[in-house]
Design a protein around this nucleic acid. Structure first.
Lengths: 347, 347
DNA sequence: CTGAAAGCGCTTACAG
DNA sequence: CTGAAAGCGCTTACAG
């Protein structure tokens, strides 16, 4: 709709005619190229203003081979559509909103626009690759929520510039941004032990998710260092409900007095479950979550949690992708952020 | 990156050569045009397979004047950037995830891709209009979070196809999708009264938001019908924190035994505040929220709330926009959905 | 520093 | 039903 409803859209050609210069000159000033005489800049700028000219992106993209678009994909395996940690869930997790916001702020200064896509099925994964191959996007920012997700590999082997949120589940020549999940879990372990908890349990995320595995491994390892060789665990799905169910089992079967939940939703569930038993948090059972999402503030006592610097991570994802677009031969680099412990009432 | 890293991308021309037909014929089969001889279809299909051809979108868009892209915008006024109901907040509200997911599912069958944009400043609003005028998007799906937001009008007067989430704050020739906020609030009022509450209060949303005004008006009107002429109110910001603060005031100043919170976050806050006072929900104070977002399930007792059919609303937004794109002369139509009461433990 | 010209990869009347 | 040709609106060597 570049026209004002009054017929044809105004083109470079029109501006050139009004300004009395060549199309090449108009193009140069529109794109801020150097070495253009001052008077040309002025006359063109004036002509642009009077005509209300806006460059046509498709025409530009056709010749520059750049779409100035990044594809933001949330992917998973087919099964996760009905699963509790499927991309539908990912979108409504408050953490995703922060991620999306962070990506947008970092992309905007470079005038790159994010288009959103969900890829759960074979067909949808194919569409992701096609979208880039047809030139609609210059690269992909991929939030892959599951181990065994074939998309990262499809993309890298198709030569598509891509940056992952979370490390890939196997060696891949791809850049990624992640938080040090093991270190974060260790922070939680140390805090619970320091606080005097004697019977500590873990509520893990779905163990098909690499990050969930790392948090578990980091927790176990830290507990080992602290002299506890075996920690009871129950697997959850990252949902509040699963946190509640897991906590009940931990209380029944292990009489825990401290728990590390692999994300805040499950942490909230754990707090709720403890209270349903007529016990109190943190005195009877202390709870530590992971993420520092808005849900951490929705329970009482508020959740002590391991904070991921999501906004900074998003900014870095954008930076790594841009770096790769600017220099296609650039070796993909990765960044792992340090988490921090946010102490609130629950532990 | 349409090339496989091995040089030039494969074009229509290449396919034509391999198939031994004209470019026009290839184009016809690629686009599924009718009246193409069977043997041509076959030979072209084969050539596409062997060459791995993918059409270039920019080239296509240049001639069709269609980008197959919809701009999804979250807008507000400049002040809301720091405000509690700014688009940053909107993105992390679980309700937005549901909305985004719904839009994507409805757009996908038509092969329209959503690009995300936030518009808080004069500059950002201008970018929205430019994006459409340069042909990067065919239309706009606008979530406007504030009264006085100039963007809806900018868009309609620029002749850009647009559909709003929530009715505009003043008469505008634009289609929108909304929930009947007044009816929803009435549902809450009736439920509280029926339950036997005698001293009922309201926690409103920011009154600069049209939807928040409607919920208040609907609540007041219903209470009037039910014989209560004046209801104490405190204005909140849609955040949990503001719900807590508002509830404390309602208890101190009005000894309420029932409260309608204009969204679930504030409803959760209200429950928390009641409990901080050593009172119980729903016996001492009953609480009803609005939205039926995931946060409604994060407190105990779980929140009784007025449900918005977000997914259906999103689907309808997409449908209305597509309708307008298919027929530019189509008079913009709107749809208002009926809310329902979801009764849980808090009231 | 500027302009004429070629070309990016498609689609679409227009003839036939 | 098919092909030759024009054209969508830009950018970018290439001369000058």
């Amino acid at each position: 709709m570049p026209d004002h409803g009054n017929g044809r859209a105004v083109t470079l050609e029109d501006v050139a005619r009004v300004a009395g210069v060549s199309r090449a000159s108009v193009s140069r000033v529109v794109n801020g190229k150097p070495d253009v005489a001052q008077h040309i800049v002025e006359v063109v700028t004036a002509a642009i203003a009077t005509t209300g000219y806006v460059p046509n992106r498709a025409a530009r993209a056709l010749v520059t081979r750049r779409s100035d678009t990044a594809l933001v994909v949330v992917s998973g395996s087919d099964t996760s559509r009905e699963g509790p940690w499927g991309p539908g869930e990912v979108l409504s997790d408050p953490i995703f909103g922060r991620l999306a916001g962070g990506l947008m702020s970092s992309l905007r200064p470079r005038d790159v626009h994010p288009v959103l896509m969900i890829a759960l099925t074979v067909e949808e994964r194919r569409r992701v690759v096609t979208y880039v191959r047809e030139g609609s996007a210059d690269g992909v920012l991929l939030v892959s929520a599951e181990a065994g997700d074939p998309l990262p590999e499809m993309l890298t082997s198709a030569g598509v510039p891509v940056v992952l949120f979370s490390r890939p589940d196997h060696e891949l020549p791809v850049g990624y941004v992640d938080v040090d999940n093991q270190a974060g879990a260790a922070l939680a372990a140390e805090h619970l032990v320091r606080r005097g908890c004697r019977r500590i349990g873990v509520i893990t995320g779905p163990l098909g998710v690499p990050g969930a595995q790392d948090r578990l491994a980091g927790f176990d390892e830290a507990m080992g260092r602290l002299g506890v060789s075996s920690v009871p665990r129950v697997e959850g799905t990252f949902s509040v409900e699963s946190g509640i169910a897991a906590m009940h089992r931990l209380i029944d079967e292990h009489h825990v007095d401290g728990v590390f939940a692999s994300n805040d939703n499950m942490g909230v569930g754990a707090v709720l479950a403890v209270q349903e038993r007529g016990l109190t948090v943190p005195d009877d059972v202390a709870v530590v979550g992971f993420d520092d999402s808005t849900s951490a503030l929705m329970c009482r006592p508020a959740l002590t949690t391991v904070r991921q610097p999501i906004e900074a991570m998003a900014a870095q994802m954008a930076r790594l992708l841009l770096e790769q677009l600017d220099d296609p031969n650039h070796t993909p680099s990765s960044t792992v952020f340090e988490p921090t412990l946010v102490v609130r009432g629950s532990a």
